[in-house]
């Protein structure tokens, strides 16, 4: 077989150039939208373009976006975690509890992150070991985790976090650049590499496309999914540290409803809700878009309840969009 016959055909790597593909991609479209929103916001308010208000604008999405990075991988693999906001509540409660016992700042951070990781492991165990559907499992743990928070806290709140702890949610690394924002960018790069540049990331895509063929090709499907649940829990724990630090208090209603915003971010970023496709750049740009929209609506003095209507409508819109596109294309064909 080494003697290649003269008429052996050469198969090119690809027909479209990668640049052309990038220009026509969903993230490129999102980028245009983001720039448009940025320009619109700068017209809406004369204060928007000041460095400090731009910096403020990042705080309302970075914590969610940090979770969205891990959630993107989970949804691409065909699973979902709706308990992320409840994990924040539980992790924050555990930190508050530790505070009552005099645990210092480093200890609080470790407890917050580990609580998130354990919650993720618990979800992962139920889904991969017991074979339960993740949407059901995580709706269950959503109530379960937050329920524990309510039992511990009742209508109380934990306050009195040490000043040093405030750095994570309120501190600046350099000038107007916040610690949260830098952490988000670093995580975004790490997740980009993990999903798009490693064997692990390739396995995530294969599993999302066809778990059966993945298994028949020697991919350890359950192990990959377990790791993804752990990662999502871990990132939720990190978000809990940031949010608790920023608010300097813990209430059981902390981060209520965030799971929807995180999922919206991921889907808006071009991740197929059915699994199998998506990209980290898309999710990062989607996070900025959500931040810009929220900030813009805030500038217009739109009340919070309208904001939640907007998020709900956006979620339905971006899920429906590819399906409607396909219907139109099929009708033409």
């Amino acid at each position: 077989m080494t003697d290649v016959t003269p008429e052996a055909r050469h198969i090119p790597d690809r027909l479209d150039s990668p640049l052309r593909a990038a220009i026509l991609s969903w993230p490129a479209l999102l980028l245009v939208v983001a720039v448009g929103l940025f320009v619109a916001n700068s017209f809406l308010s004369p204060y928007f373009l000041s460095p400090w208000s731009l910096s403020d604008a990042t705080f309302n999405f970075t914590e969610k976006a940090i979770i969205a990075l891990a959630m993107a991988l989970l949804i691409i693999s065909g699973e979902i975690d709706l308990s992320v906001a409840a994990i924040i509540a539980l992790a924050s409660t555990m930190m508050g509890l530790a505070l009552q016992f005099g645990v210092g700042t480093p200890g609080l951070v470790v407890i917050g992150i580990l609580t998130g990781l354990f919650c993720g492991m618990f979800n992962g165990f139920l889904v991969t070991r017991l074979g339960l559907p993740s949407i059901v499992v995580t709706i269950g743990t959503m109530s379960f985790f937050r329920g524990i928070s309510f039992i511990v806290l009742g209508d109380q709140a934990f306050k009195g976090y040490p000043p040093a702890f405030g750095f994570f949610g309120q501190g600046y690394v350099w000038w107007v650049v916040s610690f949260e924002f830098v952490l988000f960018l670093v995580c975004a790069v790490l997740f980009y590499v993990l999903l798009h540049r490693t064997n692990f990331g390739r396995h995530v895509f294969v599993i999302g496309n066809n778990p059966m063929a993945a298994r028949f090709s020697g991919v350890r499907v359950e192990r990959v999914k377990f790791i993804l649940f752990c990662l999502t829990g871990l990132m939720s724990g990190i978000a809990a540290v940031l949010l608790t630090s920023r608010l300097a208090s813990t209430r059981p209603s902390i981060a209520l409803g965030w799971e929807l915003e995180v999922v919206t971010m991921v889907v808006l970023g071009g991740v197929s809700i059915l699994g199998g496709s998506g990209s980290i750049p898309g999710v990062v740009i989607a996070a900025f878009i959500m931040g810009l929209v929220t900030f813009g609506l805030g500038l217009l003095n739109v009340p919070g309840i309208v904001m939640s209507i907007f998020i709900g409508a956006l979620l339905i819109f971006v899920i429906a969009l590819p399906i409607v596109f396909r219907m139109i294309r099929e009708r033409r064909a």
Binding site: T198, N199, R202, N209, G218, G276, S277
Partner: peptide, 25 residues
């Protein structure tokens, strides 16, 4: 895997060989 390119289908079980030792593609 019908929705993935031919190249990724062929390399799937051999990724350990085509990637470097740390698991980068």
């Amino acid at each position: 895997v019908t929705d993935l390119p031919i190249v990724q289908n062929i390399s799937l079980p051999s990724l350990d060989r085509t990637s470097n030792r740390r698991g980068f593609l």
